[in-house]
């Protein structure tokens, strides 16, 4: 078949299509690579650094979600080194904001919390920064709690690519980065918001939630968003 190449994942030979990413090929072949910012059918950005893999002949770790496969490539998805770096990336996410699982709407349904359990992160080695952050309750139906945001930008991409509204984006840079709606106005005043809730359903944590839910009650349906994205033509 044209465009078909062969690569090795964890020693196993698999076939792949030119243009696919390492993550896509790994998933198609039942290999698990942890991810947080990645969402099926949405453009990958390589923001969370959890999907890093080792590639033979490359002396740095590469994000599987944005690295295209090449013929003859040999990829390692699980190793002690990768485990150590994935833990560091995850612990830094926890230390950056105020993630209090016990009082979160997404407790027990949160991808960040679940990833900590999966990777065996039982404590955070880095000092918490305990930033002072706001909660935007101005929207009629939804809440944005910056304390719980990991800046994965899933909401930004889903809103721009699937809904086509592009209400969300990231303001400032570095540690001062914040997800903002329109011109950093309260969400409830964002003229471009269609109230569709795709951002809420694709948010991996409790940062975006529906109003009226108590602790543990918010269950996200990101499958609804990714299926819609695929039907509307996938990555743009």
């Amino acid at each position: 078949m044209p465009g078909q190449i062969s690569i090795r994942i964890d020693g196993e030979y698999v076939t792949a299509q030119v243009g696919q990413t390492i993550l896509e090929v790994a998933r198609a072949n039942g290999k698990y690579i942890p991810t947080l910012c990645w969402l099926e059918s949405i453009t990958p950005v390589g923001a969370c650094r959890l999907c890093i893999v080792e590639v033979s002949g490359v002396n740095r770790l590469l994000p599987a979600c944005t690295t295209p496969v090449q013929d003859g490539m040999s990829v390692t998805t699980q190793s002690e080194k990768l485990q150590a770096y994935r833990k560091i990336a995850l612990e830094l996410l926890f230390s950056e904001r105020n993630h209090i699982c016990a009082v979160c709407v997404s407790n027990n349904h949160c991808e960040l919390q679940g990833m900590a359990q999966k990777l065996g992160v039982n404590s955070i080695r880095y000092a918490y920064s305990f930033p002072k952050l706001s909660v935007d309750v101005s929207h009629e139906r939804y809440v944005l709690d910056h304390n719980r945001c990991i800046l994965c930008t899933r909401c930004v991409r889903v809103c721009a690519q699937v809904e086509g509204a592009h209400v969300w984006d990231v303001s400032s840079r570095g540690i001062h980065s914040l997800v903002v709606s329109d011109m950093a106005k309260p969400w409830g005043e964002a003229v471009n918001c269609t109230n569709c809730g795709k951002c809420v359903n694709s948010c991996p944590t409790g940062a975006l939630a529906e109003k009226g839910f108590a602790v543990e009650e918010m269950v996200k349906r990101d499958g609804k968003v990714t299926r819609l994205a695929a039907r509307r033509g996938g990555q743009q």
Binding site: N98, I100, S123, I124, Y128
Partner: peptide, 17 residues
């Protein structure tokens, strides 16, 4: 360290700002 307060600061740390 037993429980989230001892491990992460948890609810008591919500006063830290």
């Amino acid at each position: 360290a037993l429980g989230d307060c001892a491990v992460t600061g948890n609810v008591p740390s919500m006063r830290n700002q």
